[in-house]
Nucleic acid binder design. Structure first.
Length: 510
RNA sequence: GGUCUGUUCGUCUAGGGGUUAGGACACCAGAUUUUCAUUCUGGUAACACGGGUUCGAUUCCCGUACAGACUACCA
């Protein structure tokens, strides 16, 4: 097998979405598995859609996801530049080469003329409403115009494009690593513009030329490119590069969780989950879209989740580190059908990965949140809290959000518990308990529990009957981690204070 | 409309001519936790439809339906 050289080639038209990360990931996995090269090429041939900051965003997103670029924008390499706008001069010569060989031609049609043609074809109910072998002879191009007229036009300032002259009736075979052989008749392929009137190449030309020059071995990209793959094959053929054509693999699409259609920002917004790896602020509208990172997803969890959307190892193992993914990955095991995006599964992966983290690291998450709230806390205390919270959290921020009561005494109490459970017995026990605590120097989970049982027995009430109310008085909420350990973390004085406040505030329902 | 690609539990998927069609997420129930979460156990739930081929088809073939992508001087 030849050297594996794969590329991820996004265009900087906005935030990279999660499907892009998956495409990059699959490329990366293949590259790593075969000790190949992962290339990042920026396809910025559409000047009109260029979005400032998008390229930087792509770089940062890949880096956060753990997808390392070996060659390309940001790192350089032997085939630089890797930004297509900087390669502008390269493409024209290949377009010219095609013109000379009779496989491409100049076209001078205006936008209005093109519209008119499409409209006319639509009225005729033609199957093929494209600029193609069926229509090209009715248009204004170097095939229909006299030679001297063409050279006049080329010399003048009149804008023109170079179109690919697709053969009339030829079966084009695209062999795809995922879908097998796909055969399309060339009559279905239109005479795509290769060079735009602004002197920039279109995706099709730039893509083929760069993949050839950069010695790309595998083109792994989304399924939306499958329809234009025959065009690319034809391009390789007429450019004389057929033998060095890369292998193609068209990935199944990521679909909306509900209903139909491919995953979109709109759909993600509606369902309330992120679609971008990092938070993105649109430079135009200033609209902010929260990223996976900022929502608390760990990169390794997101990668694991993404890897499984359209691929599986064929075993029952689900948790895979990047290294394990590299070893297990194979193009053959990529599925054909689109995968609906299920955020629940992503959350599950996140939970699994969060749990695997050492407690010291978890404590840092909590400490970070606390810093934002201007609350001080020792690392030891933070670690203790995380240790009893870790089985109940999905995201790093949950330590703070679900554990606020460790730092802030409840001002209000869960009404449903209070109305049901707060009674004379509770008041009796807790009042006695509060006093009993005063005689203790310090409390830990064991002594707190022993004291409670002792008090309860003395008053003649089972502890089980008052636990819920007790919890509410301490945390304000109806549920939470082990109460006795919570008491220990809070410390004797704080517990007494909170009991006092609760006993004062809460009234027994009559 | 045309071209192309798909279709196994709600979701991600394994499987493959003869299987009790397997796993995971989600969901439900029980146990544990005096709460909730975790954990454990169990459960509901799928081969789109119609024809072939075959002793036998969910698996192979052909149609149909449905879905998706594409159909720009966007990528």
């Amino acid at each position: 097998m030849r050297d594996v050289r794969v590329r991820f080639a996004p265009s900087p038209t906005g935030a990279l979405h999660i499907g892009g990360i998956r495409t990059a990931l699959y490329n990366f996995l293949l590259a790593r598995q075969y000790n190949g090269t992962m290339i990042l090429r920026i396809e910025d041939t559409d000047q009109g859609r260029f979005v400032p900051g998008a390229e930087e965003y792509i770089l940062q997103s890949l880096s956060w996801a753990g997808i390392k670029i070996d060659e390309g924008v940001g790192v350089g390499g032997p085939y630089a530049p890797y930004r297509q706008s900087e390669r502008k001069d390269i493409y024209m010569q290949y377009a010219q080469q095609l013109v000379k060989a009779g496989h491409a031609y100049y076209a001078f049609d205006t936008e209005q003329e093109l519209d008119a043609m499409r409209e006319r074809l639509q009225k005729e109910k033609s199957d093929n409403q494209q600029y193609s072998s069926a229509t090209r002879m009715q248009m204004r191009n170097s095939l229909t115009l006299a030679a001297n007229e063409v050279s006049e036009l080329l010399k003048s300032n009149i804008p023109y494009v170079i179109r690919f002259k697709v053969p009339e009736n030829e079966d084009v075979r695209v062999s795809d690593l995922i879908r097998g052989e796909v055969i399309v008749n060339s009559s279905q392929v239109d005479d795509k513009v290769l060079m735009k009137s602004d002197g920039m190449p279109t995706y099709h030309l730039a893509n083929v030329v760069d993949d050839y020059l950069m010695k790309i071995s595998h083109v792994i990209r989304g399924e939306e490119w499958l329809p234009s793959a025959p065009l690319h094959v034809l391009l390789y053929q007429y450019l004389g590069w057929k033998t060095s054509m890369p292998a193609f693999a068209h990935l199944p699409l990521l679909l909306k969780p509900d209903g139909n259609g491919k995953l979109s920002k709109r759909a993600a917004d509606q369902m309330g989950f992120p679609i971008f790896p990092l938070t993105w602020t649109d430079p135009e509208s200033k609209e902010v879209a929260k990223g996976f990172r900022e929502s608390g997803y760990l990169p390794e969890a997101l990668i694991n989740f993404l890897a499984f959307l359209g691929w599986n190892p064929g075993t029952t193992q689900e948790i895979f580190s990047m290294k394990e993914l590299i070893d297990a990955f194979s193009i053959e095991r990529i599925g054909k059908a689109g995968a609906k995006f299920d955020i629940h599964k992503a959350q599950w992966f996140n939970q699994q990965y969060l749990r695997m983290k050492p407690e010291g690291e978890l404590a840092n998450y909590l400490l970070e949140s606390l810093k934002k709230e201007n609350i001080s806390c020792t690392p030891e205390k933070a670690q203790k809290i995380c240790s009893i919270m870790k089985e109940r959290v999905t995201f790093p921020q949950d330590f703070w959000e679900q554990g606020k009561f460790f730092f802030i005494a409840p001002a209000t109490f869960d009404e449903s518990v209070v109305s049901k459970k707060w009674n004379d017995d509770v008041v009796k026990v807790l009042t006695a308990y509060k006093e009993a605590l005063r005689s203790l120097a310090t409390i830990d989970a064991n002594s707190a529990k022993a004291t409670l049982e002792e008090v309860a027995t003395r008053v003649g009430i089972q502890t089980g009957k008052i636990m819920q109310a007790f919890r509410v008085s301490i945390t304000g909420g109806a549920s939470g981690p082990d109460l006795m350990v919570t008491l220990e973390i809070l410390g004797k004085d704080e517990v007494i204070d909170r009991l006092e406040y609760a006993l004062q505030t809460l009234k027994v329902k009559v």
